[in-house]
Amino acid sequence: MLEVHDLHVRYGEIAATNGISLNVSNGEIVAVTGANGAGKSSTLNAVAGIVLPTSGSIRFDGQEMTARPSHECIRRGIVQVPEGRKIFGTLTVLENLQLGAYRLSSFQIDSAGIDEVLEQFPILADRLHEPASCLSGGQAQMLALARGLMAQPKLLLLDEPTLGLSPIAADDVFDLIRGLREIGLTILIVEQNVHQTLALADRAYVIEGGCVVLEGDACDVAGASGLTSAYLGMADQSERIWPSGRSSPEEQEIIKTRTAENRDIFQNGNRR
């Protein structure tokens, strides 16, 4: 469904991504994890047409989508729920939802579409006419998700959906994403909440320094959770991350080999 190949994004002198390649198939949930500044959000923003990549290609449903503006991406079905929610606080909850459907050709002040989305978000139904600034952090995130669904996405890009939320509110968000998976939505999620995200996802990519340093089935990556941690800024503690009781010696050997390989890739990537 989505094929990203050798994606480079730069902000002036700073390289945000250094040749990221990833694929998302229809109906999958794919997680992208990594430390702050690893290039996760830049990748998502490039896919959604918010930032222009300097090189590389993005294909969606077989069509070339590289450097297409965001309104065209949304029309094709790539919808991003941005980091920090970006709710319009001075507009009402209803108006925020209507803005979600802005790019649909049938956009009117369409209560039918809103009713359908509100069934999944009953908490918003009671507050439709209140300014969005009155919502709590968790409710605002629900609104951001509901607004994303209003655009009838084929591929939903979720950028740090639990950022700044309490553990309970974060659990609610993850429950909701599980619900979206059941209705067959394809999701590419960027999250720092590694364990919960990997438990949810089918496949995962670990990004560091603008490069993919590990990819595979989510359960494999989750099994190598220590490896993930290694790329979250604790590389020197790799020996201590895997206490002997947590993995079998064979698993530890595999993990150590892969760590060394990936570190090598990572360092080469940095040298470039």
Partner: peptide, 22 residues
């Protein structure tokens, strides 16, 4: 729709881009 988009851009043109507003 135009009025809604105009008010959205007035609040945040960056956030408006995520809605597909130019």
């Amino acid at each position: 729709t135009f009025g809604l988009a105009l008010r959205a851009v007035s609040e945040s043109s960056d956030a408006a881009k995520y809605m597909g507003i130019n």
